[in-house]
Write a protein that binds this DNA or RNA. Structure first.
Lengths: 217, 217
DNA sequence: TAGATTGTTAATCGATTAACAATC
DNA sequence: TAGATTGTTAATCGATTAACAATC
């Protein structure tokens, strides 16, 4: 896997998209595809697709194209989806609940093994077969069970304190839905942010910019 | 606002981050900041910050820096947050509910004016003061009320049909949480995607890649 | 005025696209 | 074999960084 080193961020961000499209092609029963055909469907250039894939190896066959199924599996393997990282969810509010219910963690290399909240009313309830635990029991849980990833679905105000606690418990990987910037405090962690507010603001910008453009015409 | 034309995508994506950080500085009572100080806090280079801001105008004062509050307001205005675009939510499942409850639409240039679901059990329930309507009443609603944006929180399978309907009703702006690629069918729409699955896979990749790297040492 | 910091131009870096030889 | 399409190198394009004159 040495070859996966130093892959640029734009390439990495395109990988899930390839994976998604190849999955759809498989569902449609398509077994073979050329970079040109993929290009038409996905909106990347054929050149870029070939460049991207060649970061990881030679998956195609000259004069033929790519086997959809084997490329799908290769990309899944590159993404590490055949792993099973233990994840805990912090915050069982609307968002946390939605994330727990909505995501197929197993298909994405994870397993949800615990849900925590500090709201005593939520403690004891069940979400997707998991009992919501009291946040006070987090230390005990992490000592007993190896936890790789923390999913943060909590308010910004609560984030710094809990982030510190999680770090002290040895957790280094985060899926962060809170608006707190985790990487401020520690630089040896890996954080994937889902900033819904940012996304909504970008939509607002695009709408506003387009409306202004039309005004000019 | 002509000057806001043709701003590159990387710049646009950084704008919400500036906005967020400036908001925090304001809360801390900081009134003045230099590009250098912002650079230290945000992890962008000072040069990039100055370049970014100069896409939109001259907000600083040479020898002094930037006024936090006026820069915050300027960026809010650039983003169009002082607008009030009418938005409807399609899909009142866990995710839709979380989005409705969790987001401060008003602060982000939007107003949530309707929630729709095809599940008769959900119809009539209340989310954030809004009654969940039957999806069959969508046409009527859109004829009566100007709707700018549709927020899609529905399963991939239902997406194509509903996307078609929304398009035929004249809706051109979408905040898309579904795994369906809206821009396939129409190229005159603006879509901001939130692909939670993609985000989770990217996290999986980063964890896997780092674990491999450590193995080598 | 002197020091600081912007706005802006020029240089560098990296990512995307084009081209083509290798080869199935 | 001839046609097609990859893998890969070279050219282009765009974004980031560095430098510095303008100026508060």
């Amino acid at each position: 896997m040495n070859k996966y080193n130093n892959i640029s961020s734009p390439v990495i961000k395109r990988l899930p998209r390839y994976y998604r499209f190849l999955g759809e092609l498989m569902e449609k029963g398509i077994t073979k595809i050329s970079s040109r055909e993929l290009s038409d469907k996905m909106g990347f250039t054929a050149s870029q697709i070939r460049q991207d894939l060649n970061c990881f190896g030679e998956f195609g066959q000259q004069g033929y194209g790519y086997s959809v199924e084997s490329l799908y599996n290769e990309i899944g393997h590159i993404l590490g989806l055949d792993n099973c990282y233990n994840a805990i969810l912090i915050g069982a509010g609307n968002l946390g609940k939605a994330v727990a219910m909505h995501m197929s963690f197993e298909k994405r290399g994870f397993r949800l093994i615990g849900i925590f909240d500090n709201d005593k009313e939520k403690v004891g309830t069940n979400i997707k077969g998991l009992r919501v635990s009291d946040l006070d029991d987090l230390d005990k849980f992490c000592f007993e069970t190896k936890t790789d990833v923390a999913i943060l679905c909590l308010p910004k105000t609560a984030a710094p304190e809990i982030a510190d606690k999680l770090y002290s418990l040895g957790i280094r990987y985060y899926w962060n839905f809170s608006h707190y910037d985790l990487s401020i405090d520690h630089d040896d962690i890996i954080v994937e942010n889902v900033h819904l507010n940012d996304s909504l603001m970008i939509l607002c910008y695009r709408i506003s910019a387009e409306k202004e453009k039309n005004k000019d015409i």
